[in-house]
Design a binder for these strands. Structure first.
Lengths: 149, 149
DNA sequence: ATCATATATTTGTATAGACAAGTAATGTAT
DNA sequence: ATACATTACTTGTCTATACAAATATATGAT
């Protein structure tokens, strides 16, 4: 459905403004799919993102700064995110012995199991992207990379 | 910059997951430009969105439901958004006389002036989109429309 | 060794978002 | 006419986000 019809706007001043509205609107559309999906699994998007980052380094730990730099949403408060994940038993935190300012975060077995549970559900989530062919998905992705510069 | 480099991830499981991460990351990038831009003008994105909708109908009023349906971010609480805009003197609200459940919202002269102030700054904001040619902007926009189905 | 500066994480706070429940006016079926 | 459902907006509450300030540790210059 054209963005003009989605937000009942006859036309945009220019193609860049149309793209801006479209990016914001599409992100909302995406969140409306992702938030309930992860909520059903007892996670938020950001919590899942952190777990996936930790799995990538497992069994090595990752410190807060590195977690932040690898997150899709850079605005998240890592301290409070990790607190939630510890409560759920998905990660551990320890003070780094070589630099005591840093915190080492590791994913637990329970956390790995939760990620496997998410993985099993992922294909059904990804179906919503299949309005685009694989080639089109690559094309959009590359153009977004180019947009950000 | 490629999304892989932005979030320090070697590769994605498939092109659709890469697109998903890229959409979320690009939206964050966009918000990091838009939020300070509008903040500098004393508005939030959603407040600006509402004012623009009201200008589109001016001098006719728009009711809450219609505002919600035309907003880029559908999750906004229109009641509280309008409260803020009334405080600032940018809109008025009146009970609709033909259906007393509905609220008629109108933009004021002050609101129109504020929008003119925003318009004057818009070209500088749009420069950040010029990494894409006009044709590419149209292409991405159309593919996003297609993605949502 | 001391002090200033930088780095890494934490905490506080004000505002916004998500979502459920509430209120008031209208429409509809009997 | 009355009761029930629907519509349109409001309010409450809990959580998350944005951003500034605070704390703790490490580094570097004198």
């Amino acid at each position: 459905m054209r963005i003009e019809d989605e937000i009942h706007q006859k036309e945009f001043k220019d193609d860049y403004r149309r793209l801006m509205a479209n990016l914001l609107f599409t992100n909302n559309w995406l969140n409306q799919q992702l938030i309930p999906f992860f909520k059903g699994l007892g996670l938020t998007l950001q919590q899942h993102n952190v777990l996936a980052i930790l799995r990538g380094q497992h069994p090595e730990p990752v410190c807060f700064g590195d977690i932040q730099n690898r997150m899709v949403d850079r605005n998240s408060n890592v301290t409070r995110l990790i607190d939630k994940l510890i409560e759920k038993g998905y990660v551990t935190r320890d003070i780094c012995q070589t630099n005591r300012r840093m915190i080492e975060v590791r994913i637990t077995e329970t956390g790995l199991k939760k990620l496997q549970e998410v993985d099993a559900m992922f294909p059904s989530l990804m179906e919503r992207f299949h309005n685009l062919s694989q080639e089109e998905a690559v094309l959009v992705s590359n153009l977004l990379d180019k947009l950000r510069g």
